[in-house]
């Protein structure tokens, strides 16, 4: 199992942070462009899924799976979006994303007076803690050689 990369968007669709662990293929465009496309797609998928859903949807968690990877979207009550790409077998990703939100984002961005909340995150401590939490997760640990 593997964790590939993570995008963090604020409620307006701005990319606040991007982190990458294993990524064998780059998209061939700039990060900004890629982020815009990613956000646009998530936005569309969300509205589509909500519209066609035969039952009432409330949960702030959504995944889609291709043959090769799985995209996990976790949305907080404050409409921040965490998007994590993993392989298709990864387990416990929802819990991991919740942990990233409460123990990394809230602790080291919200509780840091020097981080502006609507700007890309510059704090090195945030990046370090994020890396630590992801690398500690079982989904990251049991990766194939």
């Amino acid at each position: 199992m593997t964790i590939y990369n993570l995008y963090l968007f604020d409620r307006d669709g701005q990319l606040l942070h991007y982190a990458e662990w294993t990524r064998n293929k780059q998209s061939g465009m700039t990060r900004e462009e890629e982020a815009k496309l990613m956000y646009g797609m998530i936005f569309s998928i969300k509205s589509f899924v909500t519209k066609v859903s035969p039952i009432d949807l409330r949960e702030g968690y959504l995944t889609y799976t291709t043959n090769k990877y799985r995209l996990n979207l976790y949305e907080t009550p404050s409409r921040f979006k965490f998007i994590l790409n993993t392989d298709v077998h990864a387990q416990g990703i929802k819990e991991l994303l919740h942990q990233i939100y409460t123990q990394v984002y809230v602790e080291y961005v919200v509780c840091n007076p020097l981080c502006q909340l609507n700007k890309p995150i510059e704090s090195e401590l945030f990046a370090a803690k994020l890396d630590e939490v992801v690398k500690q997760s079982p989904a990251y640990a049991s990766r194939p050689a």
Partner: peptide, 12 residues
Amino acid sequence: SHMAAGKQYLQY
């Protein structure tokens, strides 16, 4: 403790 671990933001 929530700001940094090291020299970042030292001036603040």
